[in-house]
């Protein structure tokens, strides 16, 4: 029982990262119809940003948590204006080439300066140690991540469901052409939405810095699972991406705990789930078939 709770908790924490990253991918895909293969690189930049600020300027975690996502949002918006917006009229293959190319460039730039070794980053003073849950202890920092990520997801959901900008994003995601014909300048929201999605990736990166090895390839490994999460949740579905993020985190943790006799299954469980979901529901769990313009 304790082991189950503990692996569930660990799964939810990994799921929190998947959810934040998948959420950003989903809002970007919804608004731009671009699959951002560079998302993992922005996550890595988030973690490196926190590391560099602390190591070279003594900027603490809490400041990095705000500053780094904002800076990455600006970088993302600049890249969107310079390159990504050109993808709208091109074959989807260019989408892959451009964003994957960006990933390699960003990774190598970081590698050039900091090498491939992992850089240490300590959890902030208030979040060290562990919390006693009676049956088991759990690292305080992980409890914090879980609570923080859930709060961010709820906040994004609230903004999408209850604000005018959120309504415009939903409308433009569902029917871009009709939305323009109803007098909404959809183009004006595209760059900020891209920046927002990137900020979420950066935020996940900062959160990961004290917990995961900070190195140039940290995003490359994670993002493959995140793409599986997005496909399972339904490409472009906001709710689906968050639910699938937490869900897959738990499934992975349970597989590690209980299928250790079958390491191949435990390591590939995400893709097994993805294949099964796609056979059952080709548009993903919460996805809808592409609507008309």
């Amino acid at each position: 029982m304790t082991a189950l709770l503990q692996s569930t908790f660990n799964g939810l924490v990994s799921g929190a990262f998947y959810a934040l990253l998948a959420l950003g991918l989903a809002v970007i895909f919804g608004m731009l119809r671009v699959v951002n293969f560079a998302h993992g690189a922005f996550y890595m930049l988030g973690a490196f940003g926190a590391y560099v600020l602390l190591a070279e300027a003594g900027v603490p975690f809490w400041v990095a948590l705000v500053v780094v996502p904002l800076a990455l949002a600006l970088l993302g918006m600049a890249l969107e204006r310079a390159f990504i917006h050109r993808l709208t009229r091109l074959d989807p293959l260019y989408n892959f080439l451009l964003t994957f190319g960006l990933t390699l460039i960003l990774q190598d730039l970081v590698k050039l300066r900091y090498g491939v070794q992992s850089s240490p980053y300590e959890a902030p003073a208030g979040l060290r140690g562990s919390v006693d849950f009676g049956l088991f202890d759990f690292p305080t920092y992980r409890v914090f991540i879980l609570g923080f990520a859930v709060a961010v997801c709820v906040g994004v959901w609230w903004a999408l469901a209850r604000t005018r900008v959120g309504m415009i994003v939903r409308a433009a995601t569902e029917r871009p052409e009709l939305t323009r014909a109803l007098g909404i300048n959809v183009g004006r929201w595209i760059t900020p939405v891209f920046g927002f999605g990137i900020a979420l990736a950066g935020l996940a990166g900062v959160l990961a810095a004290p917990m995961r090895a900070v190195n140039p390839l940290m995003g490359a490994d994670l993002i493959i699972v995140v793409f599986a999460v997005v496909v399972i949740g339904g490409l472009g579905s906001i709710f689906g991406s968050v639910a699938a993020g937490f869900g897959i985190g738990m499934v992975q943790a349970w597989a590690e705990a209980y299928l250790s006799a079958f390491p191949i299954v435990a390591q590939t469980i995400v893709f097994i789930v993805m294949a099964a979901v796609l056979l059952w529901r080709p548009a993903g769990l919460f996805g809808r078939a592409e609507a008309p313009a």
Binding site: M167, R170, T173, E174, A181, P292
Partner: peptide, 10 residues
């Protein structure tokens, strides 16, 4: 529009 242009997500 001819398809009435209802949004499912609104």
């Amino acid at each position: 529009p001819d398809d009435r242009g209802s949004y499912a997500t609104l």
